[in-house]
Nucleic acid binder design. Structure first.
Lengths: 158, 158
DNA sequence: CGACTTGAGTTCACGCGTGAAGTGAACTAG
DNA sequence: CTAGTTCACTTCACGCGTGAACTCAAGTCG
């Protein structure tokens, strides 16, 4: 193991407990998104697509600023610009300058876009239950929320 | 919230505790890899690059079959083939048919490749400590390992 | 007022990952 | 023996995400 095979170096290599925590986390991070995305593909959605559509659908009048969307989805503006461009091309969303302040851009769901997220939501929730919630007892669920908070990762509402 | 705003549908929408667990997990999954990868970029490595190099460096004589590497890194053969191709082009690794069974391909680190992972390891471990281990008390670390196991996600050694 | 600054957002070039298609080695069946 | 099957692996085409460069609207300063 590279991490702990050089005792001659001034590096605090990981012990077994640390390694178990670390590898647990990274494995979840690497594998879980793919699992949750797979059923969404039937709707032509990536996981991030779904989360973006979901966040907009929850906003007042199903519209919000791109910067607010970036905050809610933990995504970069660059990424979202590309995503919303795809949505526009599919007729799911539209973008326009915020009338209150032209520096901002508002992203709004079309009726078609709303229908997509409505259709996909039950599938998404079922996947979340199956892959995340059902296998975990309450103390583990609480731990997940607590850990995310401790790691200074802001959970977004989805 | 899309997830629970359609009480008229036969779907078990998420309650607050479930949502906190779910959003905690997905936020970690979305944001943590990027954090850990950033310092590795100074070495020209993605996080997956590092984990691949690390896994090979730990194998006997610093070589192992591609399929074994895929298992250890939780990566697909397709992905690894691309990654190893890059490594070969950089002189970090070589691939050859397994003399014991020509159906298999062996991936081996070159001295240059080994030096890359040796150079990057302290940085990687420090990032893991800073972003994952240091903010978490022992019970949360134990929870991570337990959760990964419960979610049927096999932690790989890194 | 004009020049400059700041921040939101878009575009661009390119790296990376995926699934499908293809290749080849070993094994199996007739 | 040959034909077919299976599995490991590579290649390919393309979607997606990133960081840098760019644009633009609003605010600030002299």
């Amino acid at each position: 193991m590279t991490d702990d095979s050089r005792a001659d170096e001034p590096v605090a290599w990981l012990d077994a407990e640390e390694k178990a925590a670390w590898t647990g986390l990274i494995s979840i991070a690497l594998l879980m998104p793919g699992r949750l995305e797979a059923p969404l593909r039937d709707f032509g959605l990536t996981l991030f697509d779904y989360m973006s559509l979901s966040a907009i659908s929850e906003a007042p009048d199903r519209r919000l600023r791109m910067s607010e969307l970036a905050y809610l989805t933990n995504g970069s503006l660059s990424r979202l610009s590309n995503v919303l461009k795809r949505f526009e091309q599919k007729g799911w969303a539209e973008r326009y300058p915020d009338p209150a302040d032209g520096r901002y851009t508002v992203a709004a769901l079309t009726d078609a876009g709303y229908e997509v997220v409505v259709a996909a939501a039950p599938t998404h929730v079922r996947a979340v239950r199956e892959h995340v919630l059902d296998p975990l007892p309450p103390e583990d669920r609480a731990a997940l929320a607590r850990i995310a908070e401790r790691l200074r990762i802001r959970p977004a509402d989805h």
